[in-house]
Nucleic acid binder design. Structure first.
Lengths: 211, 211
DNA sequence: AAAGATAGTAATTGATTACTATCTATTTTC
DNA sequence: GAAAATAGATAGTAATCAATTACTATCTTT
């Protein structure tokens, strides 16, 4: 007979973190809406009921996961732009950091998209919205700085440029989710950003035109 | 007392079409995965069981809906590009036609995204994939033509340009789904496309540079 | 107008879901 | 080292879902 090893007792906060990570891993292969508390518990080698010792309900789990994603993603992006003097270079660095983050956590964008698409305003959706807003602010700041220092076209539509930046990433992510190939996305990212950069930069430093 | 008027008997094929339209309308306000057969039936003033007279199971309903969306969207896009001599102008026309279609049927992209994100390959996902492939082919054709006639940069990365085209739309759609404002999306579309165009065009006919 | 085909209703099924009540094992605390 | 608090398992609950059944109304055909 197999001995059912009982999971180690973890303090509540630690168990919460383990839960969040389990959900993100599950979201990589399962449609977020179809992730059941039973599936989460099974993935943690825990019984379903035990989850509710640490979360009052399922929605609280989603909330914790969104918080985790927002925190990690924003930290990654901030770090990428940190210390980069050129606004355009900072944008490129952010772009690639974002794509890398997603390739490491494929479940993250699925949860974000799924949550943001939801009709009714759940707490998790509120968090996702707040993150997107923060993201857009960072971008706007960089774009304005880029205009000021002459890297970006003065007549550039800043809002449209920010929308396109985020949209470009979303498009890459969506297509990688379809193909399931996360490596390809990172390769495509630099190529796609090159076109975006050409669209917003003041002058095109096109190496082919030098010849 | 209220008289329960029994719905008119419709021939099978007509009832299938009505069903598909009901689902798309529901998808505009409901997360696609949460649309129940009961909700569909209620929206059609029908009992839940009656649906299964016309569809063998729920998945067959999704399949029918995806077929409907793919057919209508591609027809709209083809018509938009039809008779436009300039490849770049054709791309712009396609872009705006696509955005208009989405603003008329907000449920359509939600179903597409939701379906494409799904992990396992359902028949509906197969249809969605096929449509995306067809879409990409149309784009590649136009991009190559644009290069040939000198509208687009010769060294343009065609594949990346196609990815960015689709991604740009997805980004616009995603943000409109978040805000719920479909009108804003159509306004943003032209501004965002302007940047995209600048990124792929051979020369920038920037009015500001004339001065 | 009768007969057969089609399309509807109403009620029910088994499976699955989030959540809970109760008991037991493990830590922590003094 | 006993008591108290915490974290787990076990075994439920009510609600909801897709799908099915038995039956009835309506349309079409001859």
């Amino acid at each position: 007979m197999t001995t059912h090893t009982r999971p180690k007792n973890l303090p509540a906060e630690e168990r919460r973190n383990v839960t969040v990570e389990a959900v993100i891993e599950l979201a990589a292969t399962t449609n977020p809406g179809d992730i059941t508390t039973a599936a989460i518990a099974k993935h943690m080698h825990l019984t379903q009921g035990a989850l509710f010792r640490h979360f009052p309900n399922k929605e609280a789990i989603w909330q914790a996961v969104m918080k985790w994603v927002a925190k990690r993603l924003m930290a990654r992006i901030d770090k990428a732009a940190e210390g980069v003097e050129s606004p355009l270079a900072a944008m490129r660095s952010m772009f690639l950091a974002h794509v890398t983050f997603v390739s490491e956590h494929p479940g993250a964008p699925r949860m974000l998209f799924g949550e943001l698409q939801g009709a009714k305003p759940t707490p998790a959706k509120r968090l996702a919205r707040a993150m997107m807003k923060q993201y857009a602010e960072r971008l706007n700041h960089l774009i304005e700085a880029g205009k000021a220092c002459g890297e970006l076209a003065e007549d550039l539509d800043s809002q449209a440029a920010a929308t396109l930046f985020i949209g470009t990433i979303q498009g890459l992510v969506m297509q990688s989710l379809m193909s399931g190939d996360m490596e390809k996305m990172r390769a495509d990212a630099t190529r796609v950003f090159a076109i975006y950069q050409r669209g917003i930069a003041k002058t095109q430093n096109d190496p082919a035109e030098v010849a």
